[in-house]
Write a protein that binds this DNA or RNA. Structure first.
Length: 575
RNA sequence: CGAGGUGUAGCGCAGUUUGGUAGCGCGUUUGGUUCGGGACCAAAAGGUCGCAGGUUCAAAUCCUGUCACCUCGACCA
């Protein structure tokens, strides 16, 4: 490819709409152009990167016996009614009618389609397991797209579905996919992607992992323990705290006029949040029934864990009069409000605590949880925090960071096979629901994520396995016939040798040439100029500045090819 | 969906308060001089000022409506 004829302008100034590094470089570098909110067209460089990522994914999916298929983008609503998701999913599922007035949907994921493809006469047990996957466009009408390709409405995704006849078989295959994912991310040049335990939603007991690239622009909060390697999405992270008794005191009602928040009350009573009981009120979405959560005053509620615990959708409450809930003074002692009451385990074993007295302007001091309350069981709905105790190794070294979810793997169980009638024939002639797993990778998001962690002040530094080209050849002073001739020859030779090369044959100044090359981020840079030719050489350098050397013109093609091969194998040779 | 912001040339912006018929930088085109980190000189092209309606002799500017985009929040199979 010659740069002189390549579409996509590269420019110096950062467009006002761009917020994050990957978005800035991919817009400024002529990789893509926004069409609408969260919808982009890709120019050739981005298309080539994405295609290479897809091919790496293909190889690894094929290596775990995947069968590539292709589902439709448009599906009839009836298929989604079978699983119940036509009604349970909100407006992020794009719905429309075809000319016949039939309800249709745009695929945001393809569990339904995969079951539809696979079902029919129940197959014998011996036909299992198998896995199908596709790499295809998804559309999710996100309430708020942002950050270039990190969070979009239309995107390319690899989604895979595996089918099993036993939980043990699913788990075995799940482990193979987990490993395949590690290989995929390593081969894409981001071996630092880590798997974290993730929230499995309300389906209970199912295991799932998210593959996270840790970076500050990430939208997910990741909990890690440096001592033992424990990793979890905040949504799924246990919160462990240690309480020490400070000495019993009588339960005493005290006047706290106008002191409503934890901070106010603690300041007023000369105490600390850890020695107080916080009440947070939620409502069930469907019934508006109140849920009062009591937890230690210094902690916050993890709404995902709470949602899973109560088993339905919830939202922060707007407390109205007449339910026995005294806003600002809610406490567990003599609480008579019309609400479901939960006690977080952060309160377990506490004594001498401050809590609301369920009366305006009154709190209790000296609350001893064991002595003063009859609590049948504690739940775990608090958000963990930096310095909290690791639920695995017990060391108080929990760290909090941000991550981008570039992939996930999920043990689905029988949710879709059961509702949509996908069964297999057992050896004794009976029928049973097929057990499923699903496995996703956001291709465009992975591309942007790599850019987030592989760049310098001038542009992306693409790992050679996914770089749009392997070699960026600059003919510096292309107006000089000897330069043009040497560069043309090298360009031809490299292509003959199977090297992917972008050739900057434009008669532009060195500054322009280098800036554009930096924005394209091609890992190997070759410069042919009057200077280098004067030495009978070309200049061979790495985009990441890890090497730079003269190579004789005669052996240039050979040496460049060898360098490319070395760089490729350095990344591709993963366990 | 809630709050805030912005729409003027491919990109970045000024002009809007106080109405007078659109400008700057980058980029682009042409010619010339330069040439290893976004060169210089000269000339040129490019905009129904988001859209619709209204007020006015006159609207980028004032009024009404609408759409789009951005940020924060809510949401996220």
């Amino acid at each position: 490819m010659k740069l002189s004829s390549m579409l996509g302008d590269r420019f110096r100034e950062t467009p006002a709409d761009c917020q994050i590094i990957s978005q800035i470089y991919m817009i400024r570098g002529g990789y893509m152009k926004q069409v609408a909110n969260g919808i982009y067209s890709l120019y050739t460089p981005a298309r080539r990167i994405v295609r290479k990522i897809e091919n790496i994914i293909r190889e690894e999916m094929d290596a775990v016996d995947g069968q590539e298929v292709l589902f439709p983008v448009v599906m009839p609503a009836d298929l989604w009614r079978e699983s119940g998701r036509y009604d349970s999913i909100g407006s992020e599922l794009a719905r429309f009618k075809d000319r016949g007035g039939n309800d249709m949907v745009l695929g945001m994921t393809h569990e339904e389609a995969s079951v539809q493809l696979v079902r029919g006469t129940p197959k014998p047990e011996s036909a299992f397991p198998f896995m199908i996957y596709q790499i295809q466009t998804k559309f999710r009408d996100e309430p708020r797209a942002r950050g270039g390709l990190i969070r979009v409405r239309e995107f390319t995704m690899k989604d895979a579905y595996s089918f099993h006849t036993s939980q043990a078989d699913l788990e075995e295959y799940y482990a193979r996919c987990y490993h395949a994912y590690e290989r995929i991310f390593a081969r894409c040049g981001v071996p630092e992607v880590v798997a974290v335990k993730s929230d499995s939603g309300m389906m209970g007991g199912n295991i799932s992992h998210e593959f996270m690239l840790l970076t500050d622009i990430g939208e997910d909060t990741i909990v890690t323990c440096p001592a033992c390697g424990y990793r979890s999405n905040m949504e799924a992270a246990d919160c462990v705290v240690k309480n020490e008794k400070v000495g019993s005191a009588p339960l005493t009602k005290v006047a706290t006029p106008g002191q409503k928040t934890i901070e106010e009350v603690c300041t007023f009573l000369n105490s600390v949040p850890e020695r107080s009981v916080k009440a947070v009120v939620y409502q069930e979405n469907l019934t508006d029934k109140y849920i009062v959560v009591f937890l230690r005053g210094d902690l916050e509620v993890n709404e995902t864990k709470l949602r899973n615990f109560v088993g339905c959708e919830i939202h922060p409450a707007e407390v109205e009069e007449g339910h026995g809930i005294v806003k600002g003074f809610i406490g567990p002692v003599n609480f008579t409000g019309d609400a479901r009451v939960l006690f977080d385990k952060s309160l377990d074993g506490t004594d001498n605590m401050i809590c609301g007295a369920n009366e305006i302007d009154c709190h209790y001091t000296g609350l001893d949880i064991e002595r003063d309350l009859k609590i049948e069981s504690f739940c775990d709905v608090a958000k963990t925090y930096a310095g909290a105790i690791c639920p695995v190794c017990g060391k108080p070294e929990i760290q909090i960071s941000r991550g981008v979810e570039v992939g996930n793997i999920f043990q689905l169980g029988t949710k879709y096979s059961h509702s949509m009638g996908l069964q297999y024939q057992t050896k004794d002639g009976g029928f049973a629901d097929v057990i499923m797993g699903c496995y996703g990778i956001g291709v465009g998001r992975l591309c942007a994520s790599v850019c987030e962690v592989r760049h310098d002040d001038y542009g992306p530094i693409w790992p050679i396995t996914i770089a749009p080209w392997q070699v960026h050849l600059c003919a510096m002073r292309a107006d000089k016939p000897e330069v043009k001739e040497a560069a043309d020859q090298l360009y031809d030779a490299l292509q003959q040798a199977g090297v992917e090369v972008i050739y900057d044959d434009r008669p532009v100044s060195a500054g322009v040439m280098f800036s554009d090359a930096d924005l394209l981020g091609v890992p190997v840079r070759v410069i042919v100029s009057p200077k280098t030719l004067g030495r009978g050489a070309i200049d061979l350098a790495a985009r990441d500045k890890s090497f730079r050397r003269d190579v004789p013109v005669e052996s240039a093609c050979e040496e460049i090819s060898a360098t490319v091969r070395e760089m490729l194998s350095a990344i591709n040779n993963v366990e």
